[in-house]
Computed example of a mutant assay.
Amino acid sequence: MTFLRPTRRTLFAASLALPAIARAAEPFPSRPIRYICPFPPGATNDNVSRTMARALQARLGVPVVVENRAGAGGAVGSRFVADSRPDGYTLLNASAGNLTIAPHLGAVGYDPLTAFAAVASAGESFSLIAVNPKLPVRSLAELIDYGRQHPGELNYASAGIGSAGHLRGALLADEGGFEAVHVPFPGSAPAATSVVTGDCHVMLDPITAPHVVSGRLRALATLGEDRWDAFPDLPTAGELGVGRNWPSGGWFALFAPAGTPPEVVARLNRAFNDALGEAEVNAALHRFGLRPVALSPDVLAERVAADHAATGLALRRLSIA
């Protein structure tokens, strides 16, 4: 039997292949994970990102590092994740703004229904309709009446063009039959500050909650399927006959690039859902206005597709898109 002696070229080629083979055999996860928040620090998305990143780190045994990549209603960070390697090491903390609203408003560089693999849901988000206390209104009905009596004078702040607050404000003005000026900010934190100082009048966002508790803002109603347990005496907009047919703008969820292996998605989903059951994580999410809801990747993907379609219809009806 004749044996062929390996040449330098074959030995070199084999040495190059070894790292790739080793990487393929690595269990997931075996190195740090990048957790992309597509909004600025201080925003609700950022708070949820940091809470869940810490929880995942404890369960996965590797660093999970939050990176803020804000801009274009969440589209900048979303595109970064969509273009990343689908290996589970770059994840997106998504919300309605960057997956079901911004893609209808212009070219974002990704298809929200095909560019991502749904991973896990952080939960349903409550929100508040809050005003500066100097505005002479103490109920949602009075706000609507004020808007009708002062056409074009009211304005509402949001976390930016294409944010959930942008859409909610437009829907409120449309259903209330009054004109209101949208004032976009680079994030929900500075938008809330503008309402506290009186530069803006109204905001529809969960980040207003601590300002309501401190008395710096006045809450008129909550947005959500039922009452927010942090404000049990505050009626929902639906109870007051407003917003019953609005598309959902209230959820936060984890996504990976499309093509991420199913076993990696399943591993992340288990860790994420386990974290939602932890008392400390649950309490933190409640403080940020969320009701934790564990979903499978398939159910989450169906939810996003339905919200994307309903939101598109609303935006076109309002001539926003």
Rank of each mutant, 00 (worst) to 15 (best):
G312K: 04
D199L: 10
L11D: 09
G77C: 09
N68C: 14
N282Y: 10
L217I: 05
G61H: 10
A20V: 09
G289C: 06
P297R: 05
S30A: 15
E67H: 14
G250W: 01
R317Y: 04
G74S: 12
A283Y: 00
G73F: 12
D298C: 02
G187T: 09
G77M: 11
G241D: 11
E302R: 13
P190Y: 06
D233T: 09
T193M: 13
T236C: 01
N245Q: 11
V264S: 05
A192K: 01
A94S: 15
E26C: 02
F252P: 00
H182K: 01
V293M: 07
S127P: 00
D111M: 05
P40F: 07
A164Y: 07
H104E: 04
G169R: 02
V196W: 11
A53C: 12
A191T: 09
T197K: 01
A301F: 01
P19G: 02
M52I: 15
N47G: 14
P103Y: 06
A55D: 02
S158I: 02
G97N: 13
G177M: 01
T236H: 02
T51L: 10
S214I: 08
P232Y: 08
G187A: 06
S188E: 15
G162E: 08
A266P: 00
G238A: 14
G147A: 05
P136W: 08
E179G: 03
L254M: 15
A53L: 11
S139F: 07
G169S: 05
P206K: 10
A294W: 03
V119G: 02
T2F: 08
A115D: 13
L295H: 04
L254Y: 11
E175M: 07
A301R: 09
R317D: 14
L172P: 00
G109E: 04
A305D: 02
P133C: 03
P27Q: 13
V293D: 07
N47L: 15
E124K: 04
M1I: 11
S139Y: 11
V119L: 05
E278N: 10
V65W: 04
P184L: 02
R317M: 12
R287L: 12
E280M: 04
H211I: 02
P136I: 03
H286W: 10
S49C: 14
L254F: 12
N269Y: 00
A284N: 09
R168I: 08
V181W: 01
P186L: 07
G97K: 12
G238V: 13
Y156G: 00
P262T: 11
G88K: 07
V181H: 12
L167Q: 06
L99H: 12
R218W: 09
G176P: 00
D226E: 14
V66A: 08
E179Q: 13
A279R: 14
P19V: 02
K134Y: 08
L234C: 05
L204W: 03
R227V: 15
A219P: 01
I320W: 13
D174P: 01
A209T: 06
G176W: 01
A117L: 02
G147S: 06
E67M: 10
N245R: 07
P103G: 09
D83A: 14
N47K: 15
F288W: 12
